[in-house]
Amino acid sequence: MGDPSRVGEARRYAADLAQRLDFDAIQRGRLAVAVNELGNNLLRHARGGRLLLAARAMDGGVAIELLSIDDGPGMGDLQACMRDGFSTGGSAGQGLGAVQRLADDFDIHTRAGEGTLILARFFRDRDAGGGPVRHRNGFEVGAICVPAPGEQVSGDGWDVAVVESRVDLVMADGLGHGPDAAEAAMAALAAFDSERGALPGNYVERSHAALRGTRGAAVGALRLDAAAGRIRFAGAGNIIGRVISGVADRTLLTQSGTAGLQMRSVQEQELEWPPHAQVILHSDGVQSRWQLADPGVLQRDPALVAAYVFWKFSRGRDDATVVVVRRTDN
């Protein structure tokens, strides 16, 4: 984000999105200030900065997430940078502290010399006291889905369903990128929507039939059972899963093939889901053999974890999607 006019463009887009989703005037105003502060922060300090904005269903309601990603100098003293009045760029130094106060959820990851990730989340529905309405279900889900450079739509898609102590998660990566790839991904998600409750292997087989007539897609499906502490996984094509914590790291690989075109008989994998392990599913827009240089990032909000994986390991030439699921104490 090297052009000051892009901050205004982002602010107008955010205002339009929030209005279409029936956010009230107070929340729209808070979101606009956050976009302005983070956008200007990128202009002043960032190298290769991005400001990403997305709406998603979350905690039984709707939220708008704002993500700032930059390869700038990072923050050597985060606490000092968060204090009002602190500035390294000649500004009033109100930016990060103001965004933290305005957002319903705020998280940040930074390392000196590496760059900074910032998440600000705004919920639509408010309680009588003006606070965000949440309906916790025992899981946290974070995601990032970014189209290939030069494209307006992503050829990737994902969806999640939470039922009691279980999460069903699917991801589809339409072949290539652009509108035709997006059409294939949407067909795969429509199959998931019509087959809620199907086991991963059954879903992948049904998506194979649903995608005939499209260009086809790589698909992956997970069932995460917190009560049993088990994971079931199936897929075709380059969708990759990781089960990762500070002490464990297991990879889930799909079999070869393309749903809608050619696919062998589906085989499910099953493995343990350790209590503190997070499950990360991503498309092949992200490198397949990545390692976290800073495992401490796993303690951050799942949306920030997903953004970190994209930030550090995106191939930079294709659609890229990362979804992170972890259990909470509820």
Rank of each mutant, 00 (worst) to 15 (best):
A15T: 08
A15R: 12
A15M: 05
A15C: 02
D16C: 05
D16G: 12
D16K: 14
L17C: 04
L17F: 02
L17W: 01
A18H: 08
A18C: 11
A18N: 10
A18S: 14
A18D: 06
A18I: 11
Q19C: 04
Q19N: 13
Q19F: 03
Q19V: 04
Q19E: 15
Q19M: 08
Q19Y: 06
Q19P: 01
R20Q: 15
R20G: 12
L21P: 03
L21Q: 13
L21C: 03
L21M: 11
L21G: 06
L21T: 02
L21H: 12
D22K: 03
D22S: 11
F23M: 08
F23G: 06
D24H: 14
D24E: 12
D24M: 13
A25E: 14
A25Y: 01
A25I: 09
I26W: 15
I26H: 13
I26Q: 10
I26M: 08
Q27W: 06
Q27N: 04
Q27A: 07
R28K: 14
R28I: 05
G29W: 10
G29H: 06
R30A: 03
R30N: 01
R30L: 08
R30E: 02
R30F: 12
R30C: 00
L31Y: 09
L31Q: 03
L31I: 15
L31C: 01
A32K: 01
A32F: 05
A32T: 04
A32W: 06
V33R: 05
V33A: 03
V33K: 06
V33G: 00
V33F: 07
V33H: 01
A34C: 00
A34F: 08
A34R: 01
A34E: 02
A34T: 02
A34M: 06
A34G: 00
V35G: 00
V35L: 07
V35Q: 01
V35A: 00
V35E: 02
N36P: 01
N36S: 15
N36D: 15
N36A: 14
N36M: 12
N36G: 13
N36Y: 14
N36Q: 13
E37Y: 08
E37W: 09
E37N: 02
E37K: 09
E37F: 06
E37M: 04
E37S: 01
E37Q: 11
L38R: 07
L38W: 10
L38T: 06
L38S: 01
G39W: 13
G39M: 12
G39Y: 09
G39L: 13
G39T: 11
G39N: 08
N40L: 11
N40H: 15
N41A: 14
N41S: 14
N41V: 04
N41Q: 08
N41L: 13
L42F: 04
L42S: 10
L42C: 10
L43A: 10
L43K: 00
L43S: 08
L43I: 10
L43V: 11
L43P: 07
R44G: 10
R44I: 04
H45N: 07
H45L: 10
H45E: 05
H45Y: 13
H45Q: 06
